[in-house]
Design a protein around this nucleic acid. Sequence first.
DNA 1: CAACAGACTAAACACGCGTTCAGCCGCCCC
DNA 2: GGGGCGGCTGAACGCGTGTTTAGTCTGTTG
Lengths: 253, 253
Amino acid sequence: MFSLLNMRSVDVAAEKPAEAREPLVPKPDGSTRGRILDVAMRRFARSGFGASVRSIASDAGVSPALVIHHFGSKDKLHAACDEHVLAWIRDVKRDSIGRVAGGGTLLQVLAGADQYAPLVGYVLRSLQAGGVVGREFTEHMIADAEEYISEAVRDGVVTPSRDEAARVRYLIYSSLGAMLLSVTLDPPHDPEDVTAAMRRFMDELYLPMLELFTEGFLTTRRMLDDYLLYVPDPPPGDQPPADGTPHDDEEEP
Amino acid sequence: MFSLLNMRSVDVAAEKPAEAREPLVPKPDGSTRGRILDVAMRRFARSGFGASVRSIASDAGVSPALVIHHFGSKDKLHAACDEHVLAWIRDVKRDSIGRVAGGGTLLQVLAGADQYAPLVGYVLRSLQAGGVVGREFTEHMIADAEEYISEAVRDGVVTPSRDEAARVRYLIYSSLGAMLLSVTLDPPHDPEDVTAAMRRFMDELYLPMLELFTEGFLTTRRMLDDYLLYVPDPPPGDQPPADGTPHDDEEEP
DNA sequence: CAACAGACTAAACACGCGTTCAGCCGCCCC
DNA sequence: GGGGCGGCTGAACGCGTGTTTAGTCTGTTG
């Protein structure tokens, strides 16, 4: 069940056995340091990385000095949050492996439960800011997709591509980018539930995506053929001769 | 010539007549106020909207107080830049109308000339920040695409969709979002030429896009048919019955 | 020529930020 | 019991921010 960007929330419920697995959220830990880390992550997710140390301290019910005392500096706190979030993501991935056979529907899982809202919010913020979490998350998704798409191609349910790596990157960038853009341009009133916004987005745009994936968009092969004729073979990481541009490729209806 | 997201840079050169139209950049104006506005726009594009009034003043070779004197406040300066950029975009659109018959390749035009770098950079920043320019730009693109896609459908070169409006939105969100994500996660060393980054992105990912548009992704109609069977008709903005899930959101300390 | 107007600036103001400092408190170990 | 030690705080420091104020200079107008 390759699905890749299988986004519709309603399906999630249908696919998983009724005795729902509860979402995996990190244990409270008890220590003040842990609580600070937790509220910092949530605050960053809600307000972006410009959030002040004072606001985080206030959220945690401690003094600003204590935050610095435990983490050394705001930058180090940010780094600790990054690490914390990445670990959480790894846990969710490990936990959800083999659920929908072939895995890969990480986005589905994350959007499916409100408890993941801080995690998702944090990832989106990092994507917006070009942070390490955003980068790593994207690469995770690409690596995963690479794997199960190639499997799906072997099984004959997915078209092969002339450049699998590029296709995977394109697919992940589009879906992630579309979602990011959607919640950025039209943010949820309560920034706490980005997951709801994601599900709305999925519900609205799942049909066109499915249509595109199933039926394509163009009725003629002309543009693709022209391009293939013009450009040699891209597959193993080499660039086409760039722009020596002997391009008398003029297209015209 | 529907093309929509026709992204390949090499084509741009081929399409326009050799006696190149030079890109349309707003006249210098001469006044100090105009110069401040210009450098402010560029500074915002390069460094984001967090850029300080002092840095802008320094760029323009004037005192910070003068910036405030002319624009009232930083927010008003920001708004003036927004207006300035939107006017510029309107000019470019009007200027490029009917160039590639049917228009719509605004992105192409913008990515095609380095002189548009500040404009493009500004739009991307606004997209990142969820500003009005980003929103308006997106809606412009959607409106344009709506028009020439429907034309392309009439001409039989593009598949019809069960929900044209949703498809257009999906296509624009994906392409814009993918591009935004690409330059965010992997920003150009010299932030001055985002256009180069855009062209690189286009060159890399044009093939998979074209493949997807021409050949689709799935080899079976099963998923689409299942979905259509499950969901009635989405066209006029109504939500599917949104399954049972009474979302019990507990959590929150 | 005098007077006003507007472009422009140096200096300061008020504020929020990340961070530091000195010290208080309660716990554990000798 | 005494002494260290780590969690923790209130107050301050230094800095960068957007903005204000007072004033200078220049060109125009009566």
